[in-house]
Design a protein around this nucleic acid. Structure first.
Lengths: 349, 349
DNA sequence: GTGGGTTGGGAAAAGGTTTTCTCAGTGCTC
DNA sequence: GAGCACTGAGAAAACCTTTTCCCAACCCAC
């Protein structure tokens, strides 16, 4: 007894070809192709019959053959040097998310900091005829160890230093810093210190400058940021510098930190000194690395760079480039957002 | 004045085809193909001339056309549901590392926990004729939300629950736990507690059982593990349970933790109680998540699951499957290693 | 000088799909 | 009933490479 017609299981040994569909439906491959793609002219009946046959046989067009002909592989490369990166991961997720619905798959290529590896990956992708490349990395102010400037396919840079004349998407670090400092001000804090990472990072300066700007705009005393490392240990050390002096009046009532690890160190060190967060001092971090931000006591308010949105935007930008839409080169900054937890307390009474 | 012959820049608009190389060298495409692939018979002079022409023109064979013919795309898919995962990242790095030298590129597919997304990605990869699939995830005891059991291409499972009859690679959690407990014993510790994650995780039981086994083998008193959450907060709580009793003689002199976050909580809580690590109590974590393990005070000794090796092995296993080498199905466990830092102290005098 | 072996290289098919061009038939108008 | 427009569908080229098969030419021995 024949069962109800339904698609054949994928397990059939060699994939079903269009030729087989055409034969089964009693038409030519040309007609079959047109029926399935909604092209050409034929009776609705014929088109439907072919479609039904294809469905029954579990036909799926061979992407390789399509790509060869259309000169479009529905494939892009994602180049990164951030192996274990908590930055590039959400970014990749965003890219993949933006593209999967359009049938575009993503080659992930980790080039470390190795020129040879970069070359290898780029050539492999070019050979496989990727439609475009997204370059990303662990630092916004460093180039990948690859030259992407003279490729014949479009390239979009996300969260990494773009080549001149290329399209780059980065987070708006200054804007993010403003968010943090202005949040402190709204809560009535007035003596806002800034503890950040090494001076060799561009983002350190961008954030510090914004911090200073907001203080100045509000007529508050400016001071120097404390620059050190991206570590908890540096957070501890900075607390010693800030709160070491006997004169309590000179103590800050808020600390804006360059990343969440520093903030964690700051919070821990403050607790060890018996200084209450958020009652005595408010703390804000940067990166919104949830696993850290949620483990601090109290949980940490932090600036989120919206990296997955950034990834989405990069994916979409690349796609429209691939489709031939011209796009203005230059760097586009995407806004950050503040994720409020409990390390700043509420507004003043 | 003509410059010295060198490969044309990649920037040339449409890629150079074999036909163009053949024309330039004055031979047929067949001969050109054979010359470049070391096939067929021809004078050494002819072969060299063709090769030189190809080099000059910057010819690179179109992978799409090759794949279509050879039915081998030099492409594999990596399926994961671990979006922000610190587990799957090193694993991916290992996979990619094992494959890039063989010219194989990796499609990264994040399926979240979404059946539809999984289906979408698998179909896209099948359409693109990937040679095989590696499935990985965030939990060793859970399936991905995709059915990979009847595909016509090989599948290898790494750090996720394999289908019956498939090939799976996982970490040897019991072995890793032994490493930790035996390290404590070598250092003269005798009262070794175990604080781990939720009972719903298979690895929790595997590690706890190994911990108990080693204690028994050494004639030490067994006790119940403390099961809770994978969090620092639970580490704090567990310290309260273990060290809350007045009787100091009942206190453990070592705590083996189910992951590094718990260990961090334990270390912090011990310090807050004035109990010294490692002098009074040794602590070992699991996962060797460097960013955590190196930030604890003192830095944390931890069990590393060698995930990037695991990824490498998975990549190689898949490749030999693709090459038609039969492989015995079943689960293969890869050894862990202990990374010694300063949270256990030295051996007894 | 004929038969057989070797050498260097080309013609053509194959892989699966899309697209352009062509063509036979049908129904309509004048 | 001739011309015409349109309809439905197929043939074949194209994408680029690999591989099998074939052929012409040459050399050698008998």
């Amino acid at each position: 007894m024949p069962s109800a017609p339904e698609p054949a299981p994928v397990s059939a040994k060699p994939p079903v070809t269009l030729r087989e569909v055409a034969a089964a439906a009693g038409v030519s491959v040309a007609t079959a192709s047109k029926a399935l793609n909604g092209q050409g002219r034929m009776t609705a009946e014929t088109r439907e019959r072919i479609r039904e046959t294809a469905r029954l046989l579990g036909f799926r067009p061979n992407s390789l053959a399509q790509s060869l002909l259309r000169k479009r592989s529905f494939t892009v490369g994602l180049l990164t040097n951030d192996t274990y990166g908590r930055f590039s991961l959400p970014l990749m997720a965003g890219v993949s998310d933006a593209l999967v619905d359009k049938g575009v798959s993503v080659f992930l290529c980790n080039v470390e900091d190795d020129q040879r590896l970069g070359q290898l990956h780029v050539e492999a992708m070019l050979d496989k005829r990727v439609d475009g490349i997204i370059a990303t990395g662990k630092r916004i102010d460093r180039h990948l160890p690859v030259d992407l400037s003279n490729l014949r396919i479009p390239v979009v840079y996300a969260f990494t230093q773009p080549d001149p004349g290329a399209i780059g998407l980065v987070s708006d670090d200054a804007g993010g810093a403003r968010l943090a400092v202005e949040h402190f001000l709204r809560l009535g804090r007035r003596r806002i210190a800034h503890v950040s990472g090494p001076a060799s990072f561009a983002v350190v300066h961008a954030r510090a400058q914004a911090w200073r700007d907001v203080l100045k705009e509000n007529g508050l005393a400016e001071s120097e940021p404390l620059l050190g490392a991206w570590s908890e240990a540096w957070g501890h050390e900075a607390v010693e510098k800030l709160f070491g002096k006997a004169d309590r009046e000179g103590w800050p009532d808020a600390v804006f930190c360059g990343n969440d690890q520093i903030a964690r160190g700051v919070i821990d060190a403050l607790r060890e000194r018996g200084i209450s967060v958020p009652d005595d001092v408010g703390v804000i971090g940067f990166d919104n690395w949830e696993i850290v931000a949620e483990a601090t006591r109290p949980p940490l308010t932090s600036v989120d760079m919206n990296l997955s949105t950034l990834g989405r935007e990069a994916g979409l930008a690349l796609l429209s480039l691939v489709d031939g839409q011209p796009a203005a080169p230059g760097i586009r900054k995407l806004p950050c957002r503040l994720v409020v937890r409990q390390s700043c307390g509420g507004p003043p009474e």
